[in-house]
């Protein structure tokens, strides 16, 4: 019964996942699958339901619908699940009284899949001292400590909820570089939410856009590249471009940039210069009117 990977190909499988807080719908019956070995970006505006989805996956909230994570039910099998799932929820949730050495000792004591050697090796690359308390550390150093702890755990799913919020760019770059170089492999899956989309776009393999509790986009980066295209159009062809029902248009240097969804790229190429849209542009286009 422990051999979950033989019976499920998906790390996370959600069907009709729903959650409401009073009158507010946080998740509106969404379906999604996350396969092994992927890095999935869960992107959405504030209050779109990202954190609720993550909390459901981590067994931190009640929900309606079906949800299986590594073949386990997060509601009833949380403790087993946490042997295989790690998460960094927000920055700076490490207890302020904890010492660096105590953090390592404790996780080593209670987590069967934690490697003290690995963790110490990660810590050796930082300026963290064993006797330092979390409250003496900067935000960036706290995240370094948390990341060192988490990367030393041989888990199958890593959930990151705004892991780099409030960090300077040096720490942010280092954070994702460490994850990619020292942690990620085909056995592992990472699910990440962030507002700094442009910083993670090159490491993502899959993208989920969420808005008002619904999934707007749920595709691999290759599919996104095939489906969405940006065309820079001169004034003479603007009307022709508009006829193809672009998702969005914006002016730049006297030309207009149109974003198209599902229009054949050969057809678009006749209008002007084709670009692959950035995730940030795509995000802005699909989330139009969110706060209006």
């Amino acid at each position: 019964m422990n051999d979950v990977s033989a019976t499920t190909t998906h790390i996370v499988r959600a069907r009709g996942l729903a959650k409401r807080y009073g009158a507010t719908v946080a998740l509106d019956h969404v379906d999604f699958d996350i396969a092994a070995g992927r890095i999935v970006g869960l992107i959405g505006p504030n209050g779109a339901g990202k954190t609720t989805a993550l909390k459901a996956i981590l067994g931190l909230t009640e929900f309606e619908g079906e949800l299986s994570v590594l073949g386990l039910d997060p509601r009833t099998q949380r403790t087993e699940l946490m042997q295989q799932v790690c998460f960094i929820a927000d920055v700076a949730v490490l207890p302020r009284w904890l010492r660096v050495s105590e953090a390592v000792d404790f996780v080593a004591g209670v987590h069967p899949r934690f490697s003290r050697e690995k963790c110490l090796a990660f810590l050796a690359r930082t300026k963290l001292q064993p006797t330092q308390r979390v409250r003496e550390l900067s935000k960036g150093m706290i995240v370094q400590l948390h990341l060192a702890l988490v990367m030393a755990i041989d888990a199958r799913l890593l959930v990151l909820d705004e892991p780099t919020l409030g960090l300077d760019i040096l720490y942010r770059k280092e954070f994702y570089q460490s994850l990619l170089n020292d942690y990620f492999d085909e056995e592992k899956t990472i699910l990440v939410t962030t507002h700094q989309v442009e910083e993670i776009e090159h490491i993502l393999t899959d993208l989920i856009f969420i808005k008002d509790g619904k999934l707007i986009v749920n595709a691999s980066m290759e599919e996104i590249g095939e489906r969405y295209a940006e065309v820079m159009v001169g004034p003479d062809k603007v009307e022709a471009a508009r006829a193809l029902k672009p998702l969005n248009e914006r002016g730049i240097f006297g030309k207009t940039v149109f974003l198209f969804d599902g229009v054949p790229q050969a057809q678009l190429a006749q209008l002007g210069e084709l670009h692959k849209p950035s995730v940030a542009d795509l995000f802005v286009a699909t989330m139009k009117g969110t706060y209006a």
Binding site: L60, M82, V93, P95, P112
Partner: peptide, 11 residues
């Protein structure tokens, strides 16, 4: 919110 750290461990 350090509960989120404690709850990330298999306890």
């Amino acid at each position: 919110r350090s509960v989120l750290f404690w709850k990330s461990l298999p306890i």
